[in-house]
Structures are given as structure tokens and as C-alpha cells.
Amino acid sequence: MKKKWLSYPYMIWMAIFIVIPMALVLFYAFTVKDGESVRFSLANFQKFCQPVYLKVALRSIMLAFYCTIGCFLLGYPLAMILASKEYVKKRMLLLLLILPMWMNILLRTYAWMTLLEKNGLINNFLGNFGLGPYQFLYTDVAVVIGMIYNFLPFMVLPIYSVLVKMDHSLIEAAEDLGAGRLTVFRKVTFPLSIPGVMSGVVMVFMPAVSTFIISRLLGGGQFSLIGNLIEQQFLWVGDWHFGSALSIVMMILILISTAILNHYDRDHDNEGVGGLW
């Protein structure tokens, strides 16, 4: 079947709607307005290196980092428990894990707004014990909770899929050779699950570092994360040049993460999860 030409219209489409927009972002990132004309310049990236903006970038990376750690600490035991269950139970628990992901991210984040607000359910509950009310909403803690809540399954699934395929005889061999439960985990299970952990780390880190909804709804202030900064530049300040430079920075972050992911992901497909996505 030789139908090559059927793909040509889409190539033109891709050129218009994927390649040219990217080229425009690059163009804006590397130019500045000079009166009526534009000229090549690295000023936008220099501007990014100012402490105010570096702080925002650093903050995004730090919060994404805390979120990743949180997801790992919560997610690893969960993945282990899931992997140890028998088939029917396993499928049901996996489905339950993924179900909340089917809700719009705005709504999932909004749900936390109502829980964390000053007269929200959590403060009301604590009030029964004479505690609080505490300011949870509009803090970094709220942002990290929101991120963990939204991205936890991205950590659990890759770890689970590695654990579930692990050769069980290795663990038995270690036990036969006298290793205790902790030693088996430290020396056998965990090292073998590293590829899954790495995939999980990247898959959580990527959306966490590029989000702007979660920080906008749950975080305080306008400039909280790099995503908010991009939004600000395009929609409020109107400085497309700087906004594009920020987008390039974010793309580079994502590309590095994807490269890491590909490196670890090469020889493991998400079996058992494939049915759901």
C-alpha cells in the first residue's frame, strides 16, 4: 500500500501549527524590541538570571522536588503493597488509584481549596479540639499537598510495574542465603526497582515543575512558580520576549527530564497499566 501522499497535508499542518509556533517562541526569546524594529539579543536570558527570577525558578524546582520526595515516600510502599496482591484485588486497587485522575485537574485542586480554607473542613475538625484555625490555603505547604495529590499515581504506576515483573526467585535466593527482610529490600528489591523509581521521579517532576494552576489556586502571591511567571508575561505584562525565553527554559528542563526517562524506560513498558491508558 503506497499512500505516502496522504501524509503530506498533515506535514504542512504540522509545519504551520507545531514547527512555526515553536520557531516563533525561539525568535521572540532571542530578540528584543528596539524602537520599531527587533534585534538579536540574549537580554531576555540575562533578565532571567536576575535574582528575582532565578528565585522563582529555584522555588519551582524546590517545590517540584519536595513533591517528588513526598510522592516517592508515599508511593513506594503503596506500589509494594499493590504488587503483592493477587490479580483481581490488584486490578481493582489500580483502578481506584487512577480514578481520581479522570477528574479535571482544576476541580481536583479546587477540592483542596474547600478543604484547606480558613473555615474549611480541616480547620473545622481541628476546631473541635480547640486548635486553630490555621492558615493552610495560600501557602507553599498547600501547593505541595496539591501537587502530591495530583501526581501521586505517576510515581506509583512505574514503580509498581517494575516490582510486579521482578523475578521472585531472586528474593527467595537472598532469603535462603540468610538475608533478613530489611537486607533483602536494601540489597535486592530496591536496587532492582531503580528504573521504575527513576521513571516515577521524572513523571512527577515534569508536570510539577511546569504547573501553574495548582500554584495559582492554592499558593499565595502572583509570582509563585515559573509557570505563573510565563502566564504573567504573556497575559498581563505583554512582554512576549521574556515570556518566550522563560518557555525555552521550561522546555529545556522538560527535555532533560525526558532524556532521563527514555534512558530508564527503554526496556520496560507499563504492563498491567496499559489497559487503563
Binding site: 509556533p21 517562541v25 509557570g227 512576549w240 518557555s247 522538560i254
Partner: peptide, 11 residues
């Protein structure tokens, strides 16, 4: 990231 796709199309 969606935000990059979004702004690039907007441009």
C-alpha cells in the same frame, strides 16, 4: 508542557 504549547499557539 501544555503552557508552552498554549503560548506558542497564541503567538
Amino acid at each position: 508542557p501544555d503552557i508552552v504549547t498554549g503560548v506558542s499557539l497564541m503567538i
